[in-house]
């Protein structure tokens, strides 16, 4: 692809090639070892730089920058997902995120089965115990945002469909008077089932993907 158009000289002339290889290899090894830090599958996060991002990643994903570094684009999470909610960034996406998984919650939310992250070979998706009593601390993908200006329950119609759809019903989404959804951001994992279920068009409840997906404060 980037080849010089030189005449092929066979494999006999070893010296110059060996030199090229040597220099390149030495450079590469040096560059690797200066930058390499030994670590395990755990990741370090900086809580201060929390913010939004473009793609809603599957549950258990490490922070966005680290996720793009770690994902080997093997599509295994999509193959393992029984809900087939995982999409992959196509050629229209940003080049550094191409081939990485994401979820469009309006079309299909995540059911938190944790099959995708337990099949991830490279630790881009951290393993999650689906029976964990506080799963909302491990599977933080995003946070829902409620627009009370268009939500049916806040506008005089009794709806409450998002509360019924929420897997953490009673924690993340509670039904108030006349089925008004009351959102608790500490418990919300951003699975997007409420956004998928919302009957208002456009949706009154939206999931905002998190750039920094570390667990929030200890919730009792």
């Amino acid at each position: 692809m980037k080849g010089r158009k030189t005449e092929e000289k066979g494999t006999g002339e070893g010296h110059s090639r060996r030199e090229v290889l040597k220099s390149g290899g030495v450079l590469g090894v040096l560059a690797l070892f200066t930058q390499l830090r030994m670590g395990t599958a755990e990741h370090h996060v900086d809580a201060a730089t929390s913010g939004g991002t473009r793609f809603l990643r599957p549950p258990g994903a490490v922070d966005e920058d680290e996720f793009v570094r770690r994902c080997i684009r093997c599509h295994k999470c999509g193959e393992n997902c029984p809900n087939s909610c995982i999409r992959f960034v196509g050629p229209e996406g940003p080049p550094e995120a191409r081939g990485t998984p994401y979820i469009v919650p309006r079309e299909k939310g995540c059911i938190l089965c944790t099959k995708c992250n337990n099949g991830c070979p490279s630790g881009a998706l951290q393993p999650i115990d689906p029976e964990h009593p506080r799963i909302w601390q491990q599977a933080r993908m995003g946070v829902a945002e409620l627009d009370t200006n268009i939500c049916h329950s806040y506008q005089g119609y009794v709806c409450g469909i998002c509360v019924r759809a929420c897997p953490l019903q009673g924690l993340a989404l509670k039904a108030g008077l006349w089925e008004k959804p009351i959102l608790d951001r500490d418990y919300c994992v951003g699975c997007g089932l409420c956004e998928q279920a919302c009957v208002h068009m456009p949706q009154a409840i939206r999931v905002k993907p998190l750039r920094n997906r570390q667990p929030g404060e200890e919730v009792a």
Binding site: M1, K2, G3, R4, K5, T6, E7, E8, T11, R17, V20, L21, G24, G25, L27, G28, A31, L32, Q35, D65, V68, R69, C71, I72, R73, C74, P95, E96, A97, R98, G99
Partner: peptide, 28 residues
Amino acid sequence: RFSRRTKYALLALGLLAGLLLGTQFFAE
């Protein structure tokens, strides 16, 4: 015909780019 060393150069270049830019290129 091209130079056979191209592939070694591309390997080193891709690894270096991945190192500096923080993403993986070979998968594509």
